[in-house]
Simulated assay, not measured.
Amino acid sequence: MPVINWILSQQVQLGMILCACLFVPWGQRRSCFVPRLAAGVWVFLALTDTLAFLPLWARLLLYTTLLFGLIWFSFDCSPLHALFYTTCAYAVQHIASKLAYMPIIWLIQHGRTDRLDTFVILLFSNLVVCLVIYLLFTLRIRRGRLLFDNVKTVLYSGFFLIAAVYLSVVLEDVLDSSAESYLTAYLALNAFCILFAITI
């Protein structure tokens, strides 16, 4: 259980790192790749753990900034590409976590609060979403070299990140958990967040 509790406490960070593996250019690794990657992951997790007192919206932006640094530090890619990989990783993690928390909240509303159930649902959701994204999207990227011809992708990425944080944090906080319509409103908001992330 201590391992499961640690994973659950780091679920967003670990999910972002896992999802980044779908997009990063594995054939363009920097020299001393393994030490760089290990050090980057350690700094990522250590800093996010140290700054856990920050409000949620600030933590999410911190995670994104640190993931960008980790990717750029470990892979031989431009900052533009690193930003694209980072945003894609955030989007996929966003989809996986929203899918997972829809049944988790339903279970909590019905008196089930077992952390093992939460862990299994999160793990299953992340694995399924990552597999679908890999087969439908990133497998195509692997067949060639990703190129950008303008800054539209960066602008869309920034728009997604800001909007996703707003939808996830601000609007969820507005919902009244004691209201009878809370579960319906929560599920509808999360479904919209998923659709929004897929569209971007």
Rank of each mutant, 00 (worst) to 15 (best):
Y166T: 13
L146R: 04
A39K: 07
V24P: 01
L80D: 06
W26E: 12
A100H: 04
F160E: 06
A164F: 04
C193H: 12
A197H: 05
V174S: 12
V41Q: 10
G15C: 04
A52F: 09
G15D: 08
L83G: 03
F119N: 05
R30K: 04
V24Q: 00
S31V: 12
N5R: 14
L161Y: 04
L66S: 04
T64G: 03
G144W: 03
L175H: 05
H81V: 08
F137L: 13
A191R: 13
A38C: 04
T48F: 06
N190Q: 13
H81N: 09
Y182V: 12
Q11W: 10
Y156R: 14
S157F: 05
F33V: 01
D173G: 12
L136F: 11
G40V: 10
L56I: 14
Y156I: 11
V92I: 07
L127R: 06
G111A: 02
R30H: 02
V169P: 02
F160I: 03
L70G: 03
T184M: 13
L116C: 08
T65N: 06
V34A: 07
L116T: 14
G111I: 00
A91M: 11
Q11P: 06
F68W: 01
P35Y: 02
I162T: 05
L67T: 07
Y63D: 15
C88F: 06
P25G: 01
G69V: 14
I121W: 02
R30A: 03
V169C: 11
L171A: 05
V132S: 08
I71S: 03
F84L: 06
C88Q: 07
R143K: 09
G158V: 03
I198H: 00
F137T: 15
L187G: 07
P35D: 08
A52K: 15
H81S: 12
D117T: 08
F160K: 02
V154A: 11
L70F: 07
S31I: 11
Y63Q: 14
F53D: 14
L127M: 09
D149F: 05
A96H: 09
S74Y: 06
S181R: 13
F119E: 11
Y182R: 10
I194H: 05
L47R: 11
P25A: 00
H94W: 14
R145K: 08
W42N: 12
T184F: 10
V129L: 01
W42D: 11
F44R: 09
L161G: 00
L67H: 03
V120D: 00
V3D: 06
V170A: 11
F53Y: 09
L127F: 10
P103W: 00
I95N: 08
V24R: 02
R140I: 01
Y166M: 11
I162E: 01
W106L: 07
L187T: 13
I162Q: 04
R29C: 02
F196S: 05
K98N: 15
T153N: 09
A96S: 13
R143H: 01
F84T: 06
P2S: 13
